[in-house]
Amino acid sequence: MSILVNKNSRVVVQGITGSEGSFHATQMLDYGTNIVAGVTPGKGGQTALDGRIPVYNSVEEAKNEAGADTSIIFVPPPFAAEAVIEASYAGMDLIVCITEGIPVQDMVKVKRVIDENGTRLIGPNCPGIITVDECKLGIMPGFICKKGNIGVISKSGTLTYEAIGQLVSNGMGQTTALGIGGDPIIGTDMRDALELFEADPETEGIVLIGEIGGPMEIEAARWAKENVTKPIVGFIAGQTAPPGRRMGHAGAIVSGGDDTAEAKMRIMKECGIDVCESVAEIGQKMKAALVQQTEAIA
Protein backbone atom coordinates (compact mmCIF):
# COMPACT_ATOMS: atom_id res chain seq x y z
CA MET A 1 0.00 0.00 0.00
CA SER A 2 0.91 3.65 -0.25
CA ILE A 3 -0.91 6.94 -0.63
CA LEU A 4 -2.36 8.67 -3.69
CA VAL A 5 -0.38 6.96 -6.46
CA ASN A 6 0.72 3.42 -7.30
CA LYS A 7 1.59 1.26 -10.29
CA ASN A 8 -2.02 1.39 -11.51
CA SER A 9 -2.16 5.21 -11.75
CA ARG A 10 -2.73 6.15 -15.41
CA VAL A 11 -0.78 9.33 -15.91
CA VAL A 12 -1.15 12.18 -18.39
CA VAL A 13 1.69 14.71 -18.64
CA GLN A 14 0.45 18.26 -19.37
CA GLY A 15 3.19 20.10 -21.19
CA ILE A 16 4.90 16.90 -22.36
CA THR A 17 6.52 18.47 -25.43
CA GLY A 18 8.21 21.28 -23.47
CA SER A 19 11.83 20.89 -22.36
CA GLU A 20 11.01 20.38 -18.66
CA GLY A 21 8.03 18.19 -19.44
CA SER A 22 9.83 15.87 -21.86
CA PHE A 23 12.94 15.56 -19.66
CA HIS A 24 11.05 14.61 -16.53
CA ALA A 25 8.46 12.50 -18.36
CA THR A 26 11.34 10.37 -19.65
CA GLN A 27 12.75 10.05 -16.13
CA MET A 28 9.33 9.08 -14.78
CA LEU A 29 8.81 6.54 -17.53
CA ASP A 30 12.21 5.01 -16.77
CA TYR A 31 11.25 4.77 -13.11
CA GLY A 32 8.23 2.69 -14.08
CA THR A 33 5.46 5.31 -13.93
CA ASN A 34 2.52 4.29 -16.08
CA ILE A 35 2.38 7.31 -18.40
CA VAL A 36 -0.46 6.81 -20.88
CA ALA A 37 -0.71 10.22 -22.53
CA GLY A 38 0.65 13.70 -22.96
CA VAL A 39 -1.19 16.96 -23.60
CA THR A 40 0.00 19.94 -25.63
CA PRO A 41 -2.80 22.02 -27.15
CA GLY A 42 -2.33 22.09 -30.93
CA LYS A 43 -0.10 19.02 -31.05
CA GLY A 44 -2.85 16.42 -30.74
CA GLY A 45 -2.20 13.37 -32.92
CA GLN A 46 1.58 13.59 -32.57
CA THR A 47 3.69 11.44 -30.26
CA ALA A 48 6.25 12.31 -27.60
CA LEU A 49 9.24 10.65 -25.93
CA ASP A 50 10.52 8.95 -29.10
CA GLY A 51 7.11 7.80 -30.19
CA ARG A 52 6.33 6.08 -26.93
CA ILE A 53 3.52 8.38 -25.73
CA PRO A 54 0.51 9.70 -27.69
CA VAL A 55 -0.14 13.46 -27.45
CA TYR A 56 -3.65 14.90 -27.20
CA ASN A 57 -5.04 18.43 -27.47
CA SER A 58 -6.83 18.37 -24.13
CA VAL A 59 -6.91 16.53 -20.83
CA GLU A 60 -10.47 15.49 -21.59
CA GLU A 61 -9.28 13.70 -24.76
CA ALA A 62 -6.45 12.05 -22.83
CA LYS A 63 -9.00 10.75 -20.36
CA ASN A 64 -11.50 9.53 -22.95
CA GLU A 65 -9.02 8.00 -25.35
CA ALA A 66 -6.11 6.86 -23.16
CA GLY A 67 -7.93 6.36 -19.88
CA ALA A 68 -5.83 8.88 -17.95
CA ASP A 69 -6.92 9.42 -14.33
CA THR A 70 -3.92 11.29 -12.92
CA SER A 71 -2.26 14.42 -14.28
CA ILE A 72 1.16 15.96 -13.80
CA ILE A 73 1.72 19.52 -14.96
CA PHE A 74 4.92 21.03 -16.40
CA VAL A 75 3.34 24.12 -17.93
CA PRO A 76 4.94 27.62 -17.71
CA PRO A 77 3.61 29.87 -14.90
CA PRO A 78 1.33 32.12 -17.00
CA PHE A 79 -0.65 29.06 -18.19
CA ALA A 80 -0.29 26.68 -15.25
CA ALA A 81 -3.33 27.79 -13.26
CA GLU A 82 -5.56 27.17 -16.25
CA ALA A 83 -3.91 23.79 -16.80
CA VAL A 84 -4.92 22.79 -13.26
CA ILE A 85 -8.47 24.00 -13.82
CA GLU A 86 -8.66 22.07 -17.11
CA ALA A 87 -7.51 18.88 -15.39
CA SER A 88 -9.99 19.43 -12.58
CA TYR A 89 -12.92 19.84 -14.98
CA ALA A 90 -11.72 16.79 -16.93
CA GLY A 91 -12.28 14.82 -13.74
CA MET A 92 -8.72 13.79 -12.88
CA ASP A 93 -8.54 11.96 -9.54
CA LEU A 94 -5.20 13.55 -8.75
CA ILE A 95 -3.30 16.53 -10.18
CA VAL A 96 0.36 17.21 -9.40
CA CYS A 97 1.55 20.69 -10.40
CA ILE A 98 5.33 21.07 -10.49
CA THR A 99 5.36 24.59 -11.98
CA GLU A 100 7.16 27.22 -9.91
CA GLY A 101 6.14 30.87 -10.02
CA ILE A 102 2.34 30.85 -10.40
CA PRO A 103 0.85 34.19 -9.26
CA VAL A 104 -0.97 33.96 -5.92
CA GLN A 105 -4.13 35.54 -7.33
CA ASP A 106 -4.33 32.70 -9.86
CA MET A 107 -3.90 30.06 -7.16
CA VAL A 108 -6.58 31.65 -4.96
CA LYS A 109 -9.05 31.04 -7.81
CA VAL A 110 -7.68 27.55 -8.55
CA LYS A 111 -8.10 26.58 -4.91
CA ARG A 112 -11.72 27.72 -4.97
CA VAL A 113 -12.40 25.67 -8.13
CA ILE A 114 -10.72 22.43 -7.04
CA ASP A 115 -12.43 22.59 -3.65
CA GLU A 116 -15.76 22.97 -5.44
CA ASN A 117 -14.99 20.11 -7.84
CA GLY A 118 -13.55 17.88 -5.14
CA THR A 119 -10.22 17.51 -6.97
CA ARG A 120 -7.06 16.54 -5.10
CA LEU A 121 -4.13 18.77 -6.08
CA ILE A 122 -0.51 18.46 -4.98
CA GLY A 123 1.61 21.59 -5.29
CA PRO A 124 2.23 23.83 -7.09
CA ASN A 125 5.96 24.60 -6.83
CA CYS A 126 6.72 21.16 -5.44
CA PRO A 127 8.94 18.16 -6.25
CA GLY A 128 5.90 15.90 -6.57
CA ILE A 129 5.19 12.50 -5.12
CA ILE A 130 6.86 9.12 -5.26
CA THR A 131 5.53 5.73 -4.21
CA VAL A 132 8.71 3.75 -4.03
CA ASP A 133 9.27 1.22 -6.83
CA GLU A 134 5.81 1.89 -8.28
CA CYS A 135 5.17 5.41 -9.42
CA LYS A 136 7.14 8.64 -9.54
CA LEU A 137 5.15 11.77 -10.33
CA GLY A 138 7.54 14.66 -10.25
CA ILE A 139 11.18 15.57 -10.23
CA MET A 140 12.53 13.68 -7.21
CA PRO A 141 15.61 11.52 -7.73
CA GLY A 142 14.00 8.10 -7.50
CA PHE A 143 17.24 6.21 -6.91
CA ILE A 144 17.73 7.65 -3.41
CA CYS A 145 14.50 6.01 -2.16
CA LYS A 146 14.10 2.52 -0.74
CA LYS A 147 10.83 0.67 -0.27
CA GLY A 148 9.73 0.58 3.35
CA ASN A 149 7.30 1.86 5.95
CA ILE A 150 7.88 5.57 6.50
CA GLY A 151 5.76 8.30 4.99
CA VAL A 152 7.51 11.60 4.23
CA ILE A 153 5.72 14.98 4.03
CA SER A 154 7.71 18.10 3.20
CA LYS A 155 7.30 21.68 2.05
CA SER A 156 10.81 21.73 0.58
CA GLY A 157 12.25 19.67 -2.28
CA THR A 158 15.87 19.18 -1.29
CA LEU A 159 14.99 18.78 2.40
CA THR A 160 12.77 15.89 1.31
CA TYR A 161 15.83 14.28 -0.30
CA GLU A 162 17.87 14.94 2.85
CA ALA A 163 15.22 13.21 4.97
CA ILE A 164 14.98 10.26 2.58
CA GLY A 165 18.79 9.96 2.56
CA GLN A 166 18.90 9.87 6.35
CA LEU A 167 16.07 7.33 6.57
CA VAL A 168 17.86 5.02 4.15
CA SER A 169 21.21 5.34 5.91
CA ASN A 170 19.43 4.44 9.16
CA GLY A 171 17.92 1.37 7.54
CA MET A 172 14.40 2.65 6.91
CA GLY A 173 12.59 2.75 3.60
CA GLN A 174 9.56 4.77 2.52
CA THR A 175 6.01 4.02 1.48
CA THR A 176 5.40 7.32 -0.25
CA ALA A 177 7.29 10.61 -0.14
CA LEU A 178 5.20 13.70 -0.75
CA GLY A 179 6.54 17.19 -1.48
CA ILE A 180 3.56 19.46 -0.91
CA GLY A 181 5.24 22.70 -2.00
CA GLY A 182 6.00 25.91 -0.18
CA ASP A 183 3.74 28.44 -1.91
CA PRO A 184 1.17 30.44 0.10
CA ILE A 185 -1.68 28.51 -1.56
CA ILE A 186 -1.30 24.79 -2.17
CA GLY A 187 -3.71 21.98 -2.90
CA THR A 188 -2.86 19.25 -0.40
CA ASP A 189 -1.65 20.57 2.94
CA MET A 190 0.13 18.86 5.82
CA ARG A 191 -3.06 17.97 7.63
CA ASP A 192 -4.45 16.25 4.50
CA ALA A 193 -1.18 14.36 4.04
CA LEU A 194 -1.14 13.20 7.67
CA GLU A 195 -4.69 11.94 7.26
CA LEU A 196 -3.69 9.91 4.19
CA PHE A 197 -0.64 8.35 5.88
CA GLU A 198 -2.59 7.60 9.05
CA ALA A 199 -5.11 5.67 6.93
CA ASP A 200 -2.43 3.75 5.03
CA PRO A 201 -1.87 0.38 6.77
CA GLU A 202 1.65 0.02 5.42
CA THR A 203 2.95 3.34 6.79
CA GLU A 204 4.30 2.93 10.33
CA GLY A 205 5.90 6.31 10.95
CA ILE A 206 5.73 9.81 9.46
CA VAL A 207 8.39 12.47 8.87
CA LEU A 208 6.92 15.98 8.74
CA ILE A 209 9.18 18.75 7.45
CA GLY A 210 8.08 22.36 7.56
CA GLU A 211 9.48 25.85 7.34
CA ILE A 212 8.93 29.26 8.84
CA GLY A 213 5.89 31.15 7.58
CA GLY A 214 2.22 30.27 7.33
CA PRO A 215 -0.08 28.42 9.72
CA MET A 216 0.05 24.94 8.18
CA GLU A 217 2.44 23.12 10.52
CA ILE A 218 0.50 24.22 13.58
CA GLU A 219 -2.87 23.30 12.11
CA ALA A 220 -1.45 19.88 11.20
CA ALA A 221 0.11 19.36 14.65
CA ARG A 222 -3.13 20.20 16.45
CA TRP A 223 -5.05 17.81 14.19
CA ALA A 224 -2.43 15.08 14.67
CA LYS A 225 -2.72 15.31 18.44
CA GLU A 226 -6.33 14.11 18.23
CA ASN A 227 -6.19 11.91 15.15
CA VAL A 228 -2.80 10.36 14.41
CA THR A 229 -1.69 7.18 16.21
CA LYS A 230 1.58 6.71 14.32
CA PRO A 231 4.82 8.31 15.53
CA ILE A 232 5.64 11.63 13.84
CA VAL A 233 9.13 13.11 13.66
CA GLY A 234 9.11 16.82 12.82
CA PHE A 235 11.59 19.43 11.67
CA ILE A 236 11.18 23.16 10.97
CA ALA A 237 13.73 24.93 8.78
CA GLY A 238 14.51 28.57 9.40
CA GLN A 239 15.45 28.87 13.07
CA THR A 240 18.18 31.32 12.09
CA ALA A 241 16.29 33.06 9.31
CA PRO A 242 16.20 36.79 9.98
CA PRO A 243 12.75 38.11 10.89
CA GLY A 244 11.29 39.12 7.55
CA ARG A 245 11.67 42.69 6.48
CA ARG A 246 8.00 43.02 6.99
CA MET A 247 5.66 45.35 5.29
CA GLY A 248 2.89 46.71 7.48
CA HIS A 249 1.02 44.72 10.07
CA ALA A 250 -1.62 42.89 8.05
CA GLY A 251 0.38 39.64 7.82
CA ALA A 252 1.01 39.54 11.56
CA ILE A 253 -2.66 40.14 12.34
CA VAL A 254 -3.63 37.18 10.17
CA SER A 255 -0.91 34.81 11.44
CA GLY A 256 -1.11 35.87 15.09
CA GLY A 257 2.70 35.62 15.31
CA ASP A 258 2.77 31.79 15.43
CA ASP A 259 4.66 31.42 12.17
CA THR A 260 8.22 31.53 13.52
CA ALA A 261 10.34 28.36 13.73
CA GLU A 262 10.39 28.67 17.51
CA ALA A 263 6.59 28.90 17.85
CA LYS A 264 6.02 26.06 15.41
CA MET A 265 8.52 23.77 17.16
CA ARG A 266 7.02 24.53 20.57
CA ILE A 267 3.44 23.86 19.48
CA MET A 268 4.42 20.71 17.55
CA LYS A 269 6.13 19.38 20.69
CA GLU A 270 3.05 20.21 22.77
CA CYS A 271 1.03 18.15 20.32
CA GLY A 272 3.22 15.09 20.84
CA ILE A 273 5.43 15.36 17.75
CA ASP A 274 9.07 14.38 18.22
CA VAL A 275 10.71 17.60 17.00
CA CYS A 276 14.34 17.64 15.78
CA GLU A 277 16.44 20.63 16.82
CA SER A 278 18.91 19.74 14.08
CA VAL A 279 18.18 18.55 10.57
CA ALA A 280 20.80 15.83 11.08
CA GLU A 281 18.59 14.08 13.68
CA ILE A 282 15.68 13.17 11.40
CA GLY A 283 16.85 9.63 10.60
CA GLN A 284 17.95 8.69 14.13
CA LYS A 285 14.82 10.11 15.73
CA MET A 286 12.53 8.20 13.37
CA LYS A 287 14.43 5.00 14.11
CA ALA A 288 14.13 5.55 17.86
CA ALA A 289 10.43 6.41 17.54
CA LEU A 290 9.73 3.14 15.72
CA VAL A 291 11.55 1.11 18.39
CA GLN A 292 9.56 2.88 21.09
CA GLN A 293 6.30 2.24 19.24
CA THR A 294 7.10 -1.47 18.88
CA GLU A 295 7.96 -1.74 22.57
CA ALA A 296 4.77 0.05 23.56
CA ILE A 297 2.69 -2.43 21.57
CA ALA A 298 4.64 -5.40 23.00
Binding site: S154, K155, S156, G157, T158, L159, Y161, E162, G182, I209, E211, I212, F235, A237, G238, Q239, T240, A241, A261, S278, V279
Partner: peptide
Protein backbone atom coordinates in the same frame (compact mmCIF):
# COMPACT_ATOMS: atom_id res chain seq x y z
CA UNK B 1 16.79 24.66 -2.40
CA UNK B 2 15.47 27.20 0.10
CA UNK B 3 14.48 24.64 2.74
CA UNK B 4 17.85 22.89 2.75
CA UNK B 5 19.57 26.30 2.70
CA UNK B 6 17.72 27.36 5.85
CA UNK B 7 18.41 23.98 7.49
CA UNK B 8 22.11 24.42 6.68
CA UNK B 9 22.14 27.85 8.32
CA UNK B 10 20.38 26.37 11.35
Amino acid sequence: GAGLAMATMD
